[in-house]
Design a protein around this nucleic acid. Structure first.
Lengths: 220, 220
DNA sequence: AAAACTTCTGACCAAATGGTCAGAAGTTGG
DNA sequence: CCAACTTCTGACCATTTGGTCAGAAGTTTT
């Protein structure tokens, strides 16, 4: 809730080039918007609320992003950038023991480091991906199919049990994603105001062990 | 999207007692509202939209539910009823092989039979449980703690590996919940317009196997 | 320092939204 | 069949919301 003042507040003459001002303000707005969208959803977030949290007049928000939808799209494209960037491809040559461990750890770290992004993504999917459909149908599906294929090759090599690749993917995705999505719920259930590093590590350890053993993969 | 006409449409003189009319209409409205809330979220759903889908004038919706929030609460309480009812308690005497299998199957069936309810619940949690906090803090937490305790007793009896009970609960919850939440996504990724029974069965089989083996539980 | 350009903002606006209300229409009990 | 009651609804209303715009303020270029 830190109402950090906008970069330009009360001091436009701070010797910053216009280009710099533009970039700073755009990013500032995107950050604030991301947080609010993740907390209240698309419809639940008003431009006025974003303006107040960003300490900028509403008209200024609309100067940078002409419509609410454009602002939301801006937030989403930021998110997808993070997503695609850090979604490493598992390869058939890697042993699943290492590949799956790395994947789980990376995904959980992502949930921890970008909780807003994770939640917006989840909400988007939950409501039928009205804004992301296209991207999911192309980029994400490609990634998904490729990874399932890797699983199949591992199975062929007897490196893991013949589990259903698609359902393994779902399970990996949902159980790692959960550490961002149900943070609130987790906190209620664990009686903590926030998940700490220990919790994330425990979660990762648990999942790695469960998945490897569950898939009949020799640990170490 | 079937705009099924309201029970009372065009025929109030159908010899139904007022009490009956009241109940029929309340239920009809709740059903429509549940669907819309699950598709568009709380803020994204307007009373007017509910009225149109229910084939009733807006004022009539507000006659039965004085405010939008009251209507949403009505939907939520319906949902919690389903939830609590079907969330069977696992017992320390049961063997985890059976208890966990039953739990997973039941949860996945629930995702299939009540997808709207599941999604509303997920969205609620995702946004910090603004309407459900109290209930989660009492009922759900109690359930959660009790079940973790059962896990610990199973572990003490050497019926399963010493896994972290809390994280096992998270994993069970999120991976079963997923079959309702990411239905859309799943459909995109699996190239289907809808998950069919086979998919749900495959999912249940996969999860049961994975969890039992992952927890070092002897199958059969 | 003046012209050209970008950034910023208060004042508006039309549409949508949640909600009210008076009275019509229908049902029930005596 | 009439009085009491419940259900229903069109017309209205205050507020909120996304968005516009003219012109002020600041920066860059010449």
């Amino acid at each position: 809730m830190s109402k950090r003042p906008a970069p330009n507040v009360k001091s436009k003459s701070n010797r910053r080039s216009l280009a710099q001002v533009r970039q700073d303000n755009s990013e500032h707005i995107l950050r604030v918007a991301e947080r609010l969208f993740s907390e209240r959803g698309y419809s639940g977030t008003t431009i006025m609320a974003i303006a107040e949290e960003a300490c900028l007049p509403k008209a200024n928000i609309l100067y940078y992003f002409h419509t609410k939808e454009a602002l939301y799209q801006g937030v989403l494209s930021n998110i997808l950038k993070i997503w695609m960037l850090s979604m490493n491809d598992m390869t058939p040559e890697q042993h699943p023991r290492d590949a799956l461990r790395d994947y789980i750890i990376k995904k959980i770290r992502q949930s921890k480091e970008y909780p807003h992004a994770s939640r917006i993504f989840a909400a988007e999917v939950l409501h039928g991906a009205p804004f992301l459909r296209k991207q999911l149908e192309t980029d994400l599906k490609e990634q998904f199919d490729k990874t399932c294929d890797v699983f199949r090759q591992w199975i062929a090599k007897k490196w893991m049990d013949p589990v259903h690749p698609e359902h393994l993917m779902f399970m990996l995705w949902s159980s790692t994603q959960a550490y961002a999505d149900v943070q609130v719920q987790s906190c209620i259930l664990l009686n903590k105001s926030e998940l700490d590093d220990q919790d994330y590590n425990d979660g990762a350890d648990f999942l790695v062990r469960m998945v490897l053993k569950g898939c009949g993969i020799n640990p170490v």
